[in-house]
Amino acid sequence: MDDKDIHEAKLQVQGQLAAQYIQEVMQKITDKCFERCVTRPGAKLDDSEKLCTAKCMDRYLDSMTLVSQAWAARAKAQAAAGGGSSGLM
């Protein structure tokens, strides 16, 4: 195997993991926002349900950004304090 093959294999693994992660996040958002916004499913997804779902999704993604930032800040503080990652999960 030459190094180019190794590089390609790594990219492929990273691509698959990223696709899997996005799918999981979308699944979670669908579950959450469907439950919250489509309380009585009608003949079609009406405008208010769509608006609610859009807001729910956007605020969920905002929340994820904040949680990631809090996590990163904590990991950084812990690394600076000389501790390992213990307790972070």
């Binding site: 993991l17 999981e24 979670k28 959450k32 929340s63 994820m64 996590w71 999960m89």
Partner: peptide
């Protein structure tokens, strides 16, 4: 991937 999972779960809890 483990860290992403944990962040995802925590996001859901806090949301």
């Amino acid at each position: 991937a483990i860290i992403q999972q944990a962040i995802s779960k925590l996001t859901e809890t806090c949301f």
